[in-house]
Structure formats: C-alpha cells, structure tokens
Design a binder for these strands. Structure first.
Length: 552
RNA sequence: GGGCCCGUAGCUCAGCUGGACAGAGCAACGGACUUCUAAUCCGUAGGUCGCAGGUUCGAAUCCUGCCGGGCCCA
C-alpha cells in the first residue's frame, strides 16, 4: 500500500514540480511513531531543497497545497522543518478490514508464487547427536524466513543438508561400537575423541538387543563400526526429524552429503570449474582459483593423497543447487562459520552466479540461564541442554517466540525461568491472550445475542469512531506492507514486536470499550473490526509458527 | 597478526539503506476487577546511545581511531 500511496503523491506533485522525478527514488514514505505526525509522512521536501534552491519548509508548504486536494488525504500538515505529514481519511481504511476478514490467516499474502524461486537451507545439523539450542534458533529463523518469502510470492524450497560422510560419522560409529562392546566387556576402550553423550549408550543398547548376533559375527572391526555408524545415523536423523516436526519445522528436501560422492557429483563440479579455467594443480594437489572472486587465497579441492577436501564436497553441493535454477539461495549458518563464507561465495561465483546469489544468515550463540545462572553447554562432555529438553520444559510456542525476538546476528540469552512464567513477564502469553480474548468475545456474542461473528456480514464501519479504533484500522491496513518489508530485508525477528504492538492495541481496546453492546449496529461494526484483528494476528502467528489459542 | 558480532534506561533488547524531543518489554513506584477472561489496562520514574574525532542542513545510525566483551582463522 505504501507503494501505491507514494505513486499517488509523486503523480500529484510532479504535475507542478517536475524536479520530483529526479529524486523519486529517494522519496520515503514512513509511518511516524507519533500520531500527531499523521498516518504517513514523507521527506520529499528535503530532497527538493537542493534542486529547487529553496528552503525545505517553503517547498513543503507548496506540496501541502497540492496534496490537500486529494480526497483520501483528510489533512496535510508541515512540521519539523519540512516533513510533510498526511492524515488519511477514516473511510480509506475500510477496504483493508474487509480484505483481512476475507483472507483470514493469509491476510495480504501474495497468492501467486511467481515472484521468484529460492532455496533456504537451515539447521543442517550433523546426525551425530541431538539438536541443541543453536540448531533450534536456526530452525526458527530459517522456517520463519521461508514463510516470509513464501508470503511475498516466492516459490520456496526448504532444505536440510545431511553431513553423513566423513570423519564425524566414523567417530560416531566408533563411539557406538565401543559402548556396544562395553556391555559385555566394561573395560573395552572408548575412543579418545568419541561422543560421550548418554544417547550413544541408548543406541548401543538397542543394537545389543536387536543386532547383537549380526555385529558379533562381523570379523572385521571396521565393518562393524560402519554398521554401527549407519544405524546410529539413521536413529539420530529420525530423532532430529521428530524434534523438528514437533518444533513446527518441515523440510522439502533432505540432501545427503554422501550421495554427492556416490554419484560422482564432486568430480562433475570440479570438471565444470576446470572448463572455466579456474582449476590448476600444484604440489600434487588440485586447487580452485577462489582469489579471482575475492577470497584471500586459493583453496585445495583434492589433497595430494587423492582425497577430497570438505570444501570440495560443499562446492559439489552448491553446484547441484546452482543447476536447480534458483534465483538465489539462503544458507542459515552458525556464526562460527563466518570465516567460511568468503571462500564459498567465491566458489559459487565461479559458477557464474551474481554477487548476492548466495546469502548467508548467521545465527549467534544461545546462552541458557536458569536461576540467574548460565548453564554451560559442552558437546564433548555430553552435558548440554538439547532442544528436545527445552521443548518439553517450556513448549513450542514459547521457544519459537523467544528465539525470534532478537536479531539472529546477536547473542541470545534464554531465561528458562522467564519462559516458564505464565504472566505478564512472558510476551508469548500476551500475544496469544489477544487472540484468545477475541475468541472469547465471539463465543459470548453467540451465547448472549445469538449472533455468530463467523458468518459473513457487512456492518456500517462508519460507526467505528473511537481513536483506538482508528489506530487499529491503520495497523491492519499497513500490516501487509510491514510484513513485505520484513521479508525483503530478511529480518524475521521484527515479527515479534509487530505482533506485540497489535496485541497491545487489542488489549487496550478491550479494556476501554465494550463490544457486546445493545446498539446492534455498533456491536457488529466492532465485532467486524475484531475479526480483522484476528486475521492479522493469525497471519503473524502462522508466519512465526505459533499456535493461535482459542482460550486460555 | 587478520576477520566477524556486540557495547543504547537497573536488566533483556528494538531502532543503525542518516531525519522530527532516543523506543519497547521486564524490574521499581502509584492506581483500575459487581463488566465481553485483570495472563489485562492506565500512570510515574529512569539514558553523556562505550570514548574521541570526521562527513552532513541534520549522526545512536555513515567514516576513522581507541577502549571493553564474545567468537572464528592463521
């Protein structure tokens, strides 16, 4: 809607001030924080000051005269040395209420998914243990971002990359095998750098119960380890899938790293790069000229002993994505991988993709606090709070919301005590309560007035005269714009404050005004507004993966 | 030695493609339940935006340097 308003303003102004076209790109349409500054504000007078060689305030006054003629602009004011503040007429908002009511939890969504085709890869945890909090944060950010991109009309594929090749998996097999042997021989040595978590023992016990004969009959220890590795990997991957599902996260593609090697994809990618003249050999190794694309040094793809580097596998993986024809791809990574970004970016650019084809969103650490103290997490010792444990303790909605509240690129302190509190200290309940309250009013309307707000009805919206009603209408009208902005800029954390603000207005409205009033027309108008708020809340909840509860 | 993130109210953080007196939540303090759920609402108080320069009509926001916290790489 901002776009339409901007265009309308530009059209009107350009009739009298041609210079506006020169600065049209810089013209901003803002929604001022304070009401006295109008519903929308523009900076265009400042921009015209230079080309017109006049004071911005003079220009602003001139523009004000032009804009005042527009019917939907109830009032136009000049303030703060040249800001132009526009007050929209009340009736202008009505159409958006109707749209919201009709579209429910998909209010403002772009239904045609033809604006682009993208891939978002996130979580991608090694299948060597349970998901931890960092993965959880990545899962929330990734899935919410995917929802946002989908909202604005992109075809989105959600992908999980399974690191099921290499040393980590071998070590996993070795660890499980050792625990397996220890059941009968407690002194059997456990690998120095093995995985020490309790879950390893559980897997070993399961193997002992069902596959004991088979493993014991294997003469070659490596064969047994490989068997254990495969079993453990599948076991853990199933757990991961289950945890993610319960966390409201689904993937379209589960991509196996191992499959790259099995199908010769690595060589294929290297050959492609070789055909572009970007591969050379030195000291018995095969190198990629990543420096040509901004990396600080060239990188080895095949080591002198003939094995591939991890980087080569990653290149093959991204070459596969490249061939799938995405407009761009987003990788959600832990912040500890930031040093890896330049070389991968260089590699994909070597394929011939544009600069921002590969985008990476970094997820900073999550620190867990309980009783005011930090709970240290360590994978080595096997002592760490898993995502599953947190989910069981505080619930999906709380975890998702909390993980979304802060910019993913900053450290997050997660206070378990706060998350468990069912009070005003906990913002999740606050927003959910707003939805529950609306549902409660609807139930009462049915009971007391025998009026079902779920049915289609067309009230007289001109009866919504209160200030708070106007504020709410405005919030609803601009909601799709704001979501669009958030999606484009890839800032899912902003959804929480947006939701909080809307919930806050609803609570305010609820407290100060009665909806179920004797004046039937007024009642219907207010219920209609509530219905539009409900749609807005549901839309936001759906994007964030949070449940719209019916009663609390 | 190089790189990334962060430093804004007592606490946790928004704001950072420059704009109107620096915002929110929690905590603190004072009020509001014969009412559609008070898991709510209203109000008060609280800040040299780490420090110092620079660019600009205008800087929390951009640039440079420094200080402090976390992380990665060599």
């Amino acid at each position: 809607m901002k776009k339409e308003i901007k265009q309308r303003i530009l059209d009107l102004v350009s009739k009298e001030i041609k210079e506006i076209n020169e600065v049209a790109d810089k013209v901003k349409i803002d929604i001022p924080k304070e009401e006295k500054f109008g519903d929308i504000a523009t900076n265009l007078a400042f921009l015209l000051a230079k080309p017109l060689k006049k004071k911005s305030i003079e220009i602003a006054n001139r523009v004000r005269e032009i804009l005042e003629k527009e019917e939907d602009f109830e009032k136009v004011e000049v303030a703060g040395g040249g800001f132009i503040n526009i007050f929209l007429s009340r009736s202008f908002y009505w159409q958006f209420l109707t749209k919201a009511v009709e579209e429910d939890s998909r209010y403002g969504e772009e239904r045609e998914k033809n604006k682009g085709y993208i891939n978002i890869e996130f979580v991608s945890a090694n299948p060597t243990g349970p998901l931890h909090l960092g993965h959880g944060r990545g899962a929330v950010v990734g899935s919410t971002l995917a929802n946002l991109k989908d909202y604005i009309g992109l075809k989105v594929e959600r992908e999980f990359y399974i690191n099921d090749a290499g040393r980590q998996i071998y070590l996993l097999g070795k660890s499980v095998y050792a625990r397996f042997r220890q059941i009968e021989e407690p002194d059997y040595p456990f690998p120095e750098d093995g995985y020490r978590g309790e879950y390893i023992k559980e897997i070993a016990e399961e193997l002992y119960q069902y596959e004991r004969e088979k493993i014991m009959s294997m003469l070659d220890e490596d064969e047994a380890i490989e068997f254990c590795a495969e079993y453990a990997k599948n076991y853990l991957l199933d757990e991961v899938k289950k945890d993610l599902k319960d966390f409201g996260v689904e993937f379209d593609i589960w991509f196996s790293e191992k499959s790259l090697y099995e199908h010769g994809k690595v060589d294929e990618a290297i050959e492609f790069l070789r055909s572009k003249g970007l591969i050379y050999e030195k000291e018995g190794a095969v190198w990629l000229k990543t420096t040509e694309f901004g990396d600080d040094k060239d990188r080895v793809l095949i080591k002198s002993d003939g094995t591939y580097t991890y980087f080569a596998g990653d290149i093959a993986y991204h070459y596969d994505k490249f061939k799938r024809g995405y407009d761009y791809i987003i990788n959600v990574w832990g912040a500890d991988h930031h040093g890896y970004f330049p070389r991968l970016k260089a590699a994909v650019m070597a394929f011939g993709v544009p600069e921002n084809w590969l985008r990476v969103i970094f997820i900073q650490m999550v620190k867990l606090f309980k009783n005011g103290k930090e709970i240290k997490m360590s994978k080595r010792s096997g002592e760490f709070i898993t995502l599953r444990e947190l989910l069981d303790e505080v619930g999906k909605d709380v975890v998702r919301y909390m993980f979304l509240t802060k910019d993913s690129d900053t450290h997050l302190n997660f206070d378990i005590d706060l998350a468990l509190k069912q009070s005003n200290e906990n913002p999740v309940y606050y927003v959910q309560y707003a939805h529950a309250r609306i549902m409660s009013v609807f139930r009462e309307a049915k009971k007391r007035f025998n009026f079902d707000p779920e049915q289609d009805f067309s009230p007289d919206l001109s009866l919504l005269k209160e200030d708070i009603e106007r504020q709410i209408m405005k919030e609803i009208a601009f909601l799709p714009d704001t979501i669009y902005d958030i999606a484009e800029k890839e800032q899912p954390h902003k959804l929480t404050s947006l939701t909080y603000n809307l919930a806050s207005k609803l609570h305010n409205y609820y407290y100060h005004y009665k909806f179920l009033v004797d004046d039937e027309n007024l009642m219907k108008a207010r219920l209609y507004l509530l219905k539009a708020v409900r749609s807005s809340l549901r839309t936001l909840f759906r994007l964030m993966g949070i449940t719209p509860v019916e009663r609390m």
